[in-house]
């Protein structure tokens, strides 16, 4: 093979891996959104704000522990918990009174929450750009397909499937996961057999939101943590969830892969219009299969 061909192939391989690792972040966030949509039927626009809060908390915790490797691992563990706490308050105080409202109202309600959370982040953290350093173990890059890939991206490649399998086991093998799925299908029946549906919903909501927090913590070493992260991610995850099939966790995976790969190959072939390609892919999928690639829960 000629040298130019080799370079081209290695560039394709490189963009493929980067695209998939980006898709894994999208998957973690959109799986949470999808879970909430499936069980509670709430189109939660505030999900992106929770992702942003997750990233900011991760930055705060990493700095608090001196910026070393330990700090990052603590941040990865604790930011989902902080976000879970915020979502618990939001669910018990506000959401739980509104589940019976129509979708449009819920959408505008979560938009209001998004505005509030966005401004609170601005008040607490300001509008500066922040960066989180990856732990020593994951710094630097390794050579795959004869081109360098950051080690952190490979770490993300591993984390995605682990979280997917964990979520699958949770919702199919544990008691509370099965109850949540049953409540998604028929909430009256579940409450009729004596299960406190209100708390099942609260739990599902918190779980979904903490995934947003985890996504924010995971993404923090790869991007600059700043305001406006919420606007960018939320529309992407909503489209991912829709093209995957509402409430379907594997659908979120398929959608994320479509989104991440079209974006990274867009960068390779037509960098100026790279952000256009995922939307083209979404439009094609939605016109071809309006209800998503995989089976939607409702």
């Amino acid at each position: 093979m000629e040298a130019s061909q080799v370079a081209f192939l290695s560039a394709i391989g490189n963009h493929f891996l980067v695209g998939i690792s980006r898709a894994m972040i999208l998957f973690v966030v959109s799986a949470g959104l999808s879970f909430i949509l499936g069980v509670l039927r709430v189109p939660n626009l505030a999900h992106g704000s929770l992702y942003m809060i997750g990233a900011f908390v991760a930055h705060g915790l990493t700095t608090f522990f001196g910026g070393g490797s330990i700090g990052f691992w603590f941040a990865l563990l604790l930011s989902p918990l902080v976000v879970a706490l915020i979502s618990l308050v939001a669910e018990r105080a506000l959401f739980c009174h509104l589940y019976e409202r129509e979708h449009l109202m819920l959408l505008l309600f979560t938009f209001a929450l998004m505005l509030i959370l966005g401004d609170l982040v601005k008040i607490f953290w300001g509008a500066d750009y922040r960066s989180v350093t990856a732990p020593k173990l994951l710094q630097g890059s390794v050579t795959v397909f004869s081109s360098p890939i950051p080690k952190y991206n490979l770490f993300l490649l591993g984390m995605g499937p682990v979280i997917a399998v964990a979520l699958y086991l949770f919702s199919n093998k544990t008691r509370i996961g099965k109850i949540a799925r049953a409540a998604a299908a028929d909430r009256e029946m579940v409450s009729a057999i004596g299960i406190n549906v209100s708390w099942v919903f609260a739990f599902a909501f918190i779980l979904g939101c903490s995934l947003a927090g985890l996504g924010g913590a995971l993404v923090s070493p790869t991007v600059s943590v700043t305001l406006g992260m919420d606007h960018d991610i939320i529309i992407e995850t909503f489209l991912i969830v829709t093209i995957g099939g509402l409430g379907n966790m594997w659908g979120a995976m398929v959608g994320s892969l479509i989104f991440g790969l079209t974006q990274s190959f867009g960068v390779l072939f037509l960098p100026q219009f790279a952000i256009v390609f995922p939307y083209i892919a979404v439009v094609i999928v939605l016109i071809w299969k309006p209800r998503g690639m995989l089976k939607a829960v409702w």
Partner: peptide, 30 residues
């Protein structure tokens, strides 16, 4: 034309994706 074939939330999502497509092109076509 594309959207009215779908109902409710799917209508909205298809419209958002088509609209975002137009937004993205405008955003990048210097």
């Amino acid at each position: 034309l594309f959207c009215v074939r779908l109902s409710r939330l799917y209508f909205g999502m298809l419209q958002i994706s088509l609209g975002s497509l137009i937004w993205a092109v405008t955003f990048r076509w210097y």
